[in-house]
């Protein structure tokens, strides 16, 4: 792994990549952000089910 480490050991290159990605997310059009939100809901539901925990249903949107 390349990249300098912060005092807490978390690699600075990972932090920088994360910041870049979040900056991209902030600038996306709202329509695209909503698409990602539904993907987040699906991901959260998959994880909950895989852990046998109650899952909240993602939005079942009609076209």
């Amino acid at each position: 792994m390349t990249g300098q480490r912060e005092d807490n050991g978390f690699p600075s290159a990972v932090q920088a990549a994360d910041a870049r990605r979040r900056s991209q997310l902030v600038r996306l059009p709202i329509e695209e952000k909503l698409r990602l939100l539904v993907e987040l809901q699906r991901l959260a539901a998959d994880i909950a089910r895989s852990r046998r925990r109650p899952a909240r249903n993602p939005w079942q949107l009609e076209a």
């Binding site: 909503l34 990602l36 939100l37 539904v38 939005w59 949107l61 076209a63």
Partner: peptide, 28 residues
């Protein structure tokens, strides 16, 4: 580990950017 050279289109469906989606219609 890939950190420095992340692709620009890191999300899975780039075509969806310009497509009218069910989310958009429901929100509208």
């Amino acid at each position: 580990m890939v950190m420095e050279n992340q692709p620009e289109a890191w999300y899975p469906d780039k075509r969806a950017l310009s497509r009218k989606t069910a989310r958009e219609e429901s929100m509208r």
